[in-house]
Design a binder for these strands. Structure first.
Length: 440
RNA sequence: GCCCUGGUGGUGUAGGGGCUAUCAUGUGGGCCUGUCGAGCCCGCGACUCGGGUUCAAAUCCCGGCCAGGGCGCCA
């Protein structure tokens, strides 16, 4: 037994051990998934990132010292095992490894805080408390493989569209962006906050002449919400495009979501199978549009009271979502319930060039044509009881040549819910931050 | 923040004023040469906290804390 890695290096992942390399010597590294000691033969299942592989140790073929080493293993210990690949019809994947050397790299304490093999399922709270163990499960890690593919697809899509990736500050001075609560922090001798959105910065980049930008980054909101679809720290996919309006950016969004749906089906078939989720049931774009006016009628026709001008209640969202197959745009919102930077229609200013992208009853994105005229922007702030003095550095960008522009932001974790079929947003975040959870 | 429900071994549960607190999984040990939710034998391990009612509370009552679900909040 040796606890140091030394010169040991993995030669194969579990997925690379197959009957084609029968007879080869391999060195695998991973976690002890299961041990089945039948006396004269011992089976040990080793798990790595990609799956499982069986170690088979018949007493006739393997030294007694190796059998002792295998018997000393405990579940979830980290091991390196050297051995010979053998074609075996009786083994799980038609292949097994006859061990020649067993090295425990790090033993796992017993009993475990939860069972990664899920013979007994643990509750979400228990799982999150031992998230590192929870993430060893294939159905949990699949969510994050799908999410990684989602981000890669989004980036590829944006770069193909000629967009420039940016990073904006998450430490901000303004507490006055709007209605959402911010997390206050101390910034040397000043008060500061964690950023709720890159909105103002990406708009300033339109004044900087970057034309098309996107950002994938964390956002922080100090709302005391307690639901399956809200977190206090989330990831937002934001884009902003100059010389474009709401219709243009809806097309970009439509294209991005469709690209993500396609690539998930193409690249993550194994993960979707592990999750037992049929993504092909979700229609790809172009997505239908429902005007706010019509949505109000639909909702009222379902027996739910809703006045024109109100935001949708949860009940209303559900009723409307039930009438839709999957993704749809909700357009032409009342200006009063949209933020100050949303552009009102010229002839009917009570309605704005603002849209949401919904997936059934879940809001995935919201966006709009933005107000690029300084005076109108100030007017809309005042109408919403915001003090323009608090927006000095933002407003300045609108005084010296601001391109007309439009954009949107997508809740990445919510989009991941749609791609994986999970119902709790906490499942789509490695270490979620909600009203009550700040660890791990 | 409001409403509902709950808190029993490491995990997941049954029970519901008094008896050795149920079962599964786990865990420690033993047996077993083809396991794959392995099997068999033996052992280990628990009633959220505080207060109250009672001869007696894990069980009933009150409060706290924590969790799950629903709603609200969510530029």
């Amino acid at each position: 037994m040796d606890y140091l890695l030394g010169d040991l290096r993995r030669t194969h992942y579990s997925k690379d051990v197959n009957p084609d390399i029968s007879g080869e010597e391999v060195l695998i590294m991973g976690w002890v998934h299961e041990i089945r000691d039948l006396g004269g033969i011992i089976f040990v299942i080793i798990r790595d990132r990609d799956g499982l592989v069986q170690i088979t140790a018949p007493s006739k073929k393997v030294d007694a010292s190796i059998l002792d080493d295998l018997r000393a293993l405990r579940k979830e210990s980290v091991v390196a095992i050297k051995g010979t690949v053998q074609d075996a019809g009786k083994a799980p994947n038609g292949v097994e490894i006859i061990p020649a050397e067993v090295i425990i790299l790090n033993p796992a304490k017993q009993p475990l805080p939860m069972d990664p093999t899920e013979k007994v399922k643990a509750e979400i709270d228990t799982r999150l408390n031992s998230r590192f163990l929870d993430l060893r499960k294939a159905n949990v890690s699949s969510i994050f493989k799908i999410k990684a593919n989602m981000f890669k697809t989004v980036r590829d899509y944006f770069y193909e569209q000629g967009m420039i990736e940016i990073n904006t500050p998450k430490l901000v001075a303004s507490a006055t962006e709007g209605g959402t609560e911010l997390f206050p922090i101390t910034y040397f001798e000043k008060e500061a906050f964690l950023g709720q959105s890159p909105q103002l910065y990406k708009q300033m980049m339109m004044g900087a002449g970057f034309d098309k930008v996107f950002e994938i980054g964390q956002i922080f909101r100090a709302e005391e919400h307690d639901t399956l679809r809200h977190l206090n720290e989330a990831v937002s996919i934001d884009c902003e495009i100059s010389f474009a309006d709401d219709v243009d950016v809806m097309k970009v969004l439509d294209g991005m979501i469709t690209a993500v749906l396609k690539s998930t089906k193409e690249n993550c078939a194994k993960e979707l199978e592990i999750l037992e989720y049929d993504l092909s049931a979700i229609p790809e774009g172009p997505f239908p549009e429902v005007k706010y006016d019509d949505a109000v009628d639909i909702i009222n026709s379902k027996g739910i009271d809703m006045e024109w001008g109100e935001d949708l209640s949860r009940e209303a969202e559900k009723a409307l979502g039930d009438t839709q197959e999957g993704f749809y745009f909700l357009t032409d919102w009342p200006s009063a319930i949209k933020p100050f930077y949303a552009m009102p229609y010229e002839d009917t200013p009570e309605i704005s060039h603002a849209f949401d992208l919904m997936y059934k009853n879940l809001e995935i994105s919201s966006g709009s044509t933005r107000v690029h005229q300084y005076d109108l922007l100030v007017k809309q702030m005042v109408e919403r009881d915001l003090n323009p003095d608090g927006f000095g550095s933002y407003l300045k960008a609108f005084e010296y040549g601001m391109a007309p522009h439009a954009g949107w932001g997508v809740g990445a974790d919510r989009l991941a819910m749609v791609l994986t079929g999970v119902e709790n947003i906490r499942e789509t975040v490695l270490f979620p931050r909600d009203r009550h959870r700040l660890t791990p």
